[in-house]
């Protein structure tokens, strides 16, 4: 455990909600563009699972904040620097292999994070984590099998998945900052085992890129939000 002050329940709910919301949007960008119909639906399913998680976490965050903001207000009417998602989830999809590596890295982390959260004193958070845990278990399995299949596939699929691992590795450190540092050994053991099956290794340590948790995001988030928030920005309060 680092010396950083404990995360407030509000910050934690925002962080977990924003992670899920942003990755959900990224996955739904695949809609209509995935390699096959089966994968198209699979990615949308995962995206919708994450959107559901985001709604629960952000609704809870709105309640903790007590300023009358609901999940929609937090999702659609906050500025870029107010988002607390990690940098990993806002990274562009790249090719299918990179999307799968991103999913595998993130879902493996989420699985451990929710496992810990299920014991939370905050009953609402514990309930969300318990429900979402089942979804995440499938996300881990799905993405891990693709990482293995691609790594153990053709020369091209292997190159692409290795590129994905190397590119995304710099964003992994941020997942284990502050009170989440204790999750790292378990994550590395699980991720390393899957990569080994894929004929790959965990990369050597690099200087991690961080900042998302404090609202310092990569240039990609602004573009994503411009698209995601367009309707509520143009027609505030629109409902249908």
């Amino acid at each position: 455990m680092g010396p950083s002050p404990a995360l407030s329940p509000l910050d934690l709910a925002l962080r977990l909600g924003d992670d899920a919301l942003i990755l959900s949007h990224r996955l739904c960008e695949w809609s209509g563009h995935a390699p096959t119909l089966e994968i198209d639906l699979a990615l949308s399913n995962i995206g919708l699972d994450l959107l559901g998680q985001a709604q629960f976490f952000l609704q809870h965050a709105g309640g903790l904040e007590g300023a009358g903001r609901d999940a929609d207000a937090l999702a659609y009417r906050r500025e870029e620097h107010e988002f607390r998602n990690c940098l990993l989830v806002e990274q562009p999809n790249g090719d299918f292999a990179r999307t799968m590596v991103r999913q595998f890295f993130f879902s493996s982390w989420q699985a451990l994070r929710f496992e810990a959260l299920a014991d939370s004193a905050d009953a609402e958070m514990a309930a969300i984590a318990a429900k979402a845990g089942k979804e995440v278990a499938y996300h881990v399995r799905f993405s891990a099998e693709w990482v293995v299949r691609l790594g153990d596939g053709t020369a091209e699929s292997r190159r692409r998945v290795a590129d994905g691992v190397n590119w995304l590795w710099r964003f992994v450190d941020e997942l284990f900052t502050g009170e989440d540092s204790g999750l790292r050994p378990g994550w590395e053991a699980a991720a390393g085992a899957t990569l080994a099956q894929a004929g790959l290794e965990l990369p050597a340590p690099v200087r991690g890129v961080t900042g998302g948790r404090e609202g310092r995001h990569s240039e990609h988030l602004g573009h994503l939000l411009a698209e995601m928030q367009y309707l509520q920005r143009t027609h505030p309060g629109a409902q249908w």
């Binding site: 119909l37 089966e38 639906l41 699979a42 499938y138 399995r141 799905f142 099998e145």
Partner: peptide
């Protein structure tokens, strides 16, 4: 039916296409 490279992939694809 679904397309998949192997049996476990087929189960996943079937799960995602036919049991959502």
């Amino acid at each position: 039916s679904v397309h998949a490279a192997d049996a476990s992939g087929a189960v996943q694809a079937a799960r995602d296409v036919y049991t959502r």
